[in-house]
Nucleic acid binder design. Structure first.
Lengths: 188, 188
DNA sequence: TGTACATCAGTGAACGCGCGTTCACTGATGTAC
DNA sequence: TGTACATCAGTGAACGCGCGTTCACTGATGTAC
């Protein structure tokens, strides 16, 4: 049957949101089309009324997930120390233990590097926006700032990836703790 | 037919080496058993004479790949500035463009976090050895040192993951450049 | 304002493919007598 | 030293399963007259 336009749009958004969560948890190839559609309350057959292919869904889901990270950076940019304001909640146990709700740079960067242009372009664009947001509106020493921003982001992404990979709770905690110290953040 | 023990052992090593390369390039799930065996010059049927399962191969391949990284750290530990000696070749374009020959922390950390204990334990153990190697034989300010080592490793892993994910050669180069500056390394 | 009809997001069965795994079989090697 | 035989890493066909994708069909909605 034909459905009201707004309900269809709402379902479309829900598919993207569920995919963004599941792909961050299990990787692009770790969650199936049928699984995503089921999580969105639909059957898999309807998928191709919403997306041209699974790759198109992956691109939309990645964009959605990174949008969330850019939003956090925008809010952090209003603080006195934007980088610290962004980094502090990033290096938390909550973020480590809930990849499905967290930053897609950490959970999907390696996956992205193995995918095609449609996905990698999304990543590059959103990463550029993230760096720009964290540099603040007007700075003079742009070069130095970009190095601080990119260096700090690298530390965040690497520390979180390592903390999640390690199969030893104490070591995982220590990685967060030492990365926080390294960046000059308060201990957890 | 039955084969000489040494030839069998040599083939076993070749399977692991090829798997270590292909899994770093394409992820654990991105390369198949048949593909690995073909790269090692065998047919897929012989695989289960060498490994109990694909997961067992993945664990062996990860161990092999990380052994290589620990070896580089051991050699860097003999230098005047071990961390810089390790970081300098890490943040190179060559490393970025040849993930199959490079550090498995960057290419496989996210994959590892989604796998079972047999694989995650390998990662944790080798990461521990890597940190220990880079801290040098005898230091007094251990706490500070561990923070420097873990913080720097995080930066390396994150920067390389980001540089590889980005679909823009200039941005990928800039990530390496700025991360090098952030860590106080000479420009490329 | 009614009526006939085109639309299209749904459903669920089916397809083709690749994957990890299994299995019957091979035959040179190493061992027991 | 020869001979018979067990071993086991190979080969290649086959299996079962899950996946992305396709397709015939449904029926409420929106549109044309």
């Amino acid at each position: 049957m034909r459905y009201p336009a707004e309900e269809t749009a709402e379902r479309h958004r829900r598919i993207i949101a569920e995919a963004a969560r599941m792909m961050r948890e299990n990787g692009f190839d770790g969650c199936g089309v049928a699984e995503v559609m089921k999580a969105a309350g639909l059957t898999h057959g309807a998928f191709y009324a919403h997306f041209e292919s699974k790759e198109a869904l992956a691109a939309a889901a990645l964009e959605h997930a990174l949008e969330q990270t850019v939003g956090l950076a925008d809010r952090a940019a209003d603080e006195a120390a934007p980088l610290a304001a962004f980094a502090d909640p990033y290096l938390s146990r909550q973020h480590r233990d809930q990849p499905g709700k967290g930053c897609a740079m950490t959970s999907l960067a390696a996956d992205v590097s193995r995918k095609g242009p449609s996905i990698r372009t999304v990543f590059a664009r959103q990463f550029g926006r993230l760096v720009a947001a964290l540099m603040g509106p007007t700075r003079d020493h742009r070069e130095t700032s970009r190095s601080d921003v990119i260096g700090t982001l690298s530390t965040l992404v690497g520390a979180m990836a390592l903390a999640r990979a390690v199969d030893d709770p104490e070591l995982a905690d220590e990685i967060l703790d030492q990365a926080r110290r390294y960046l000059g953040l308060q201990p957890l």
